[in-house]
Design a protein around this nucleic acid. Structure first.
Length: 816
RNA sequence: GCCAGCAUGGCGGAAUGGCAGACGCGGCGGUCUCAAAAACCGUUGAGCGCAAGCUCGUGUGGGUUCGACUCCCACUGCUGGCACCA
């Protein structure tokens, strides 16, 4: 509200545009000119130095483009423009990620059909994006909802399927009771709520399509070491993949198959006093002894009910039940009672554990609650409770005295493995990617279910399987997609036997759409393949990808998986799609994330109207380090705006005069700083330098040499493309400023002949002397000691030591 | 609970072993104006002082160093990620 009021006031009270800088006319003029001359449409087939500058395509919401999008795109575009002036042929495409639950939910809410709604949203997004003045190649856009695009998303699925990387399985999956669909693990937030709508997620057993991301865990993890990506992003992926080294151990059971467990602490095996299986472990009921079976079944059913209802047991739950059956310790032969308990999860490791209450807090809590033995096997005092740290093995027979966990861990696994009861094993958190969605707004999964031949892929020449227009697209909630309502869609014939068959009615996850869009951009004109091999070889992998870390484990991981899979299947020569990735920060407002509920969303249109795209871009980039984001303030944009007006005022003072030496020096320093900071995305400090330079020119009396402003136009062009172009034209430069070579700083002019050396006493600055660069240490020391000001601070004491840092500082250390 | 990142004027931030606060916002004072806005000029970390200047100051406490916003240890707070993961 405050922002709005402020804005209204500005609108009405401000005088018309300053005559020097009519941003509306300038921006319209150049956007038209760029479009007419095809400035931003590289010859994809012929470009000698291809540079694919990618940014994350937006989801076209009904609210329109928000500042966060603008921020990301401006930063990425600035990078692309800078690279272009380094002589590279920059391809900078944009598109729209328009399928998905988000669009569909909104359509349901406002009671309109997503087909028309999304088309309108995309139109609005295109309009807003044009205003930004980015060097987008508008002749090669991608819309995931376009059959020409999702035909190839379906092709991708069929290709993965034929390559053995897609399968169908009945499995417990995350189900959102509000969106009435399955979610990928990655779409469930840490608190167990749906990423899209915030409802508590429950579990449900459904027949689903999965992609075998788990085949690639080792490579997805290992390749990270060599990727030039933001460390923060790589760390998030490493955690998500969750590699854990341990061992599989078999605990024999009399009269039954042994119970297999996963452990990372085999060194504590002598401290195992009981076993625990997950309630929904496949053998829980089998292992329950006859007289316990009914009770165990009841417990298992209750646990299942709790899980299905989405009740998350508080951590440290000790609910569990004895199965009335024992396993044998693989090394001691001791009898260990087996329990079923909710704190053991079926989805991780083997869904069963050896419990070592002396050295694991969860086992400890369970042992206390159920009166079970606690046997310490690792020495070391950590007070009451389990000791989880390092120590020395005790109560471990032949292994006593070994350091734990290492090397005891390895030696004990070896001993167990000699008896054929275990072996080392690496476990991962990452599981297969469930892609089925029981919703309407997505590409139909191209599969046909035939009573004779089972599930068969739709033949490639029959793609796309068009998403039918159905009036009532509300989700059913039965585990089936609304597409099952459409008999014309549902009934088909089997491509194998020609008999009657049913189509798959689920649609695929939006992240499948975005997992390969970068492959499509150079090939948008390609009608007979998802991507043209020649263009792909030329333009991919992506040179630089800039985007938010919110997609670190979703989009970015899936895209890597898809590239690897296509590589293995012979479709791509590379296996990592993004050579360089940089995560940008987030824009906040009033110290908080922008959100509709907080009412602190910034609508860019008003700022673009009033201050223009260039000032807006400049403000966003000046706000702080691009990697950190920044805090949006309504008044902040005044500075960059004034700066641009100032620059145009300077242009009116340009004349044919020689450049004085002092201006040459500041000009080359500015070139140096901006050239250094820009490629590192340190835009804020580059802009500060540009402002400093403009101020210096302003303070220069008289006529300003043309070259001073020409350089400014060049350095400014990645940041303020329209203003720089206009300035360049007024200075008589040839079109376009964006095709000019980047200026080079002359090292001769950067060299400073005189330096200021600080004289300090005990580390406190007391005086300074200006001396020629490279003045000898002895001379500096002499100058420092003879300083009259320094004498006042000696307080009669002797100078003990003198530390001289040439060209910087002399520190006089007083003796005592 | 675990793993990252961050903490500097009224505000956004700069400086990553050598002059803390670049650049910008905002504030204050002035010029112009009948007046206001815009623009321009000056000023703006805190305290003391008529002044020259001095003292203090980068979340907290310790340490290393001639010298620490910067490096190390411990803590506090915020942001993000993960979380009965065996």
């Amino acid at each position: 509200m405050g922002a709005l009021r402020w804005h209204r006031r500005q609108y009405h009270e401000l005088p018309p545009m300053p005559p020097e800088y009519d941003h509306q006319a300038i921006e319209a003029k150049w956007q038209r000119r760029w479009e007419e001359t095809g400035l931003n449409r590289p010859e994809l087939g012929a470009a000698p130095r291809p540079y694919f500058n990618l940014m994350m395509f937006p989801y076209p919401s009904a609210e329109g483009l928000h500042v966060g999008n603008m921020y990301a795109f401006t930063g990425a575009d600035t990078h692309g423009r800078f690279q272009r002036m380094q002589g590279l042929d920059v391809f900078e495409p944009i598109g729209f990620d328009a399928f998905g639950i988000h669009s569909e939910n909104f359509a349901l809410q406002v009671n309109r059909h997503p087909t028309e709604l999304v088309a309108a949203n995309i139109r609005n997004f295109r309009r807003q994006l044009h205003r930004l003045g980015a060097q987008f190649d508008w002749s090669r856009t991608v819309e995931t909802t376009d059959p020409d695009y999702y035909r190839w998303t379906q092709w991708l699925f069929v290709t993965l399927w034929k390559g053995g990387l897609a399968y169908r399985a009945r499995r417990n999956v995350k189900w959102c009771p509000r969106d009435l669909t399955v979610l990928a693990d990655e779409q469930v937030m840490a608190d167990g709520t749906c990423e899209r709508c915030g409802a508590a997620v429950v579990e449900r057993e459904l027949e689903q399509w999965f992609l075998r991301t788990s085949n690639y865990t080792e490579r997805l993890l290992g390749n990270l070491d060599h990727l030039d990506w933001s460390e923060s992003t790589k760390l998030l992926q490493r955690h998500w993949i969750g590699r854990s080294e341990g061992a599989l151990l078999d605990f024999p059971i009399d009269g039954a198959a042994p119970l297999r467990v996963f452990t990372t602490r085999a060194d504590t095996v002598f401290g195992a006093t009981f076993m625990v299986v997950a309630p929904d472990h496949s053998r829980t009921l089998e292992l329950a002894s006859g007289d316990r079976r009914a009770e165990v079944a009841k417990f298992v059913a209750e646990a299942a009910r709790r899980r299905i209802a989405g009740i998350r047991e508080s951590e440290g739950s000790t609910s569990g039940i004895a199965l009335g059956r024992n396993a044998r310790h693989p090394l001691t032969g001791d009898e260990l009672p087996i329990y079923a308990a909710e704190y053991v999860l079926s989805g991780y490791g083997e869904g069963a554990i050896m419990a070592v209450p002396a050295h694991d807090s969860r086992d400890h809590a369970f042992a206390l609650a159920h009166g079970l033995k606690v046997v310490p096997v690792v020495s070391g005092d950590s007070g009451p409770g389990p000791h989880m740290g390092r120590g020395t093995l005790i109560n471990s027979r032949d292994f006593d005295g070994l350091a734990a966990p290492d090397p005891a861990r390895e030696l004990i696994v070896a001993a167990i493995s000699e008896r054929g009861l275990g072996h080392p094993k690496v476990t991962y958190r990452l599981r297969d990617w469930g892609i089925s969605r029981q919703r309407y707004w997505g590409p139909p999964i191209p599969a046909i279910h035939c009573p004779v031949d089972g599930a068969v892929p739709v033949p490639e020449d029959q793609l796309p399987v068009l998403l039918p227009y159905i009036e009532d697209f509300r989700p059913l909630g039965t585990g089936e997609s609304p597409l099952s309502r459409d008999p014309g869609f549902l009934h088909t014939t089997c491509p194998v036997c020609g008999g009657p068959a049913l189509r798959e009615t689920d649609v695929s996850d939006t992240f499948l759409d975005s997992s390969w869009y970068h492959l499509r951009y150079p090939s948008t004109d390609c009608q007979d393949a998802a991507f043209d091999p020649t263009l792909t070889r030329k333009w991919l992998p992506v040179a630089t990808y800039i985007g938010g870390n919110e997609h670190a484990v979703l989009h970015l991981l899936y895209s890597r998986f898809v590239a690897m899979a296509l590589h293995d299947l012979g479709y791509l020569e590379f296996e990592e799609p993004f050579t360089r990735f940089r995560a940008h920060g987030m824009i906040i407002k009033d110290g908080a994330k922008m959100s509709k509920s907080r009412g602190n969303v910034v609508v860019p249109d008003e700022y673009l109207d009033r201050f223009g795209a260039d000032a807006f871009r400049l403000y966003l980039m000046a706000m702080g380090p691009f990697s950190e984001g920044g805090d949006f303030r309504d008044t902040g944009i005044n500075g960059p705006y004034r700066f641009l007006v100032q620059v145009f005022r300077l242009a009116e003072r340009v004349g044919e005069v020689a450049e004085p030496a002092e201006l040459a020096v500041v000009r080359h320093r500015c070139i140096q700083k901006v050239s250094e900071d820009s490629p590192q995305l340190k835009y804020n400090t580059a802009i500060a330098e540009l402002m400093k330079y403009a101020k210096r020119l302003r303070d220069h009396g008289g006529t300003i040499p043309k070259v001073s402003l020409e350089t400014l136009a060049l350095l400014l062009s990645p940041y303020c493309p329209h203003a720089a172009e206009e300035l360049w034209e007024r200075l008589g430069g040839t079109y376009s400023v964006h095709q000019q070579p980047w200026p080079q700083a002359d090292p001769e002019l950067l060299r400073e002949d005189e330096v200021v050396v600080v004289v300090s006493v005990d580390g406190k600055k007391r005086d300074q002397v200006t001396v020629p660069r490279g003045t000898a240490s002895e001379e500096l020391e002499r100058l420092a000691l003879s300083s009259a000001r320094v004498a006042n601070f000696l307080h009669g004491r002797q100078v003990g030591r003198v530390v001289v840092v040439p060209d910087k500082q002399v520190n006089l250390v007083l003796g005592r």
